[in-house]
């Protein structure tokens, strides 16, 4: 067997370890971040479009370009008029701070935790 040479040098390994450590720290930080979700906040162009209770099953039309569904404590984008459909194929969200983004329409769905206080149900 030919001796296998090392392809990655010390600098490469240091970079790999640095990125792994940063990702791990991020995941740990998010563990402390995410709790049980209580409500769903929808924003359009950075403006709050509405906040909806997760324990109430409902379908929300977001300005004609998106439709969001809340069922059994989880929320997801049911339909979007954009070509890439990334937000529609995104997994359902239910934990606090989980977010679904529809970039073309600049719509976001974000789950808010129970202790976030001022949770109002706005019916538009």
């Amino acid at each position: 067997m030919k001796h296998r040479e090392r392809r990655l040098n010390r600098w490469d390994m240091a970079l790999v370890i640095l990125v792994l450590a940063a990702a791990l720290a991020g995941f740990l930080l998010e563990l402390t971040w995410t709790g049980q979700g209580a409500s769903l906040q929808i924003t359009v162009d950075g403006e709050v479009f509405g906040t909806y209770q997760l324990d109430k099953d409902q379908t929300i039309d977001i300005g004609g370009g998106n439709r969001c569904r809340i069922e059994d404590g989880a929320a997801w984008m049911e339909w979007a008029d954009c070509p890439d459909q990334l937000c529609v194929r995104h997994t359902h969200i239910s934990r606090a701070n989980e977010t679904v983004v529809c970039l073309p329409n600049r719509v976001t769905l974000t789950v808010l935790g129970g202790e976030d206080g001022e949770v109002d149900t706005i019916v538009s």
Binding site: E30, T43, G46, R106, T108, T110
Partner: peptide, 9 residues
């Protein structure tokens, strides 16, 4: 673009 910092999630 979406003016929502939470996507750093």
């Amino acid at each position: 673009l979406v003016e929502n910092v939470k996507i750093v999630y």
